[in-house]
């Protein structure tokens, strides 16, 4: 899974995070190092879709984001599809 938008959604699935926290989390759980430009391209698209939204923060500039209900549903659908592909791929490899 290397789609930046899915990585951001997966990162926010266990709690609100600001940009830097997302970069660190994504590197930890997926082994993917996103650049700031790529991350904010994904954040812009996700917010336009209504899948994430900014939340209030005590910090002035480090803006945390949260997953919306639509975003959670979309992530579940996408992961379910990926899971299906992984299952089929592994099954076929066994029989090859």
């Amino acid at each position: 899974m290397s789609d930046p938008t899915l990585l951001v959604l997966a990162s926010l699935a266990d709690g609100d995070k600001h940009g830097y926290a997302m970069l660190e989390d994504i590197q930890r759980f997926a082994g993917v190092r996103l650049g700031p430009g790529t991350l904010y391209g994904a954040i812009t698209r996700l917010e336009q879709h209504g899948w994430i939204r900014p939340v209030r923060s005590a910090e002035d500039r480090r803006q945390p984001y949260t997953l919306s209900a639509d975003g959670r549903r979309y992530l579940e659908e996408q992961l379910s599809e990926l899971n299906q592909i992984v299952k089929i791929g592994l099954k076929r490899l066994k029989h090859a």
Partner: peptide
């Protein structure tokens, strides 16, 4: 997004590819 994006650039350890990434993303936008 400007203020929060600048804050991220200040926090992150950046390399040359990250700078190219910022240029590419800015042009796309």
């Amino acid at each position: 997004y400007g203020r929060e994006f600048d804050a991220l650039l200040e926090d992150a350890n950046l390399n040359v590819l990250d700078v190219f990434g910022v240029v590419r993303s800015a042009l796309e936008m």
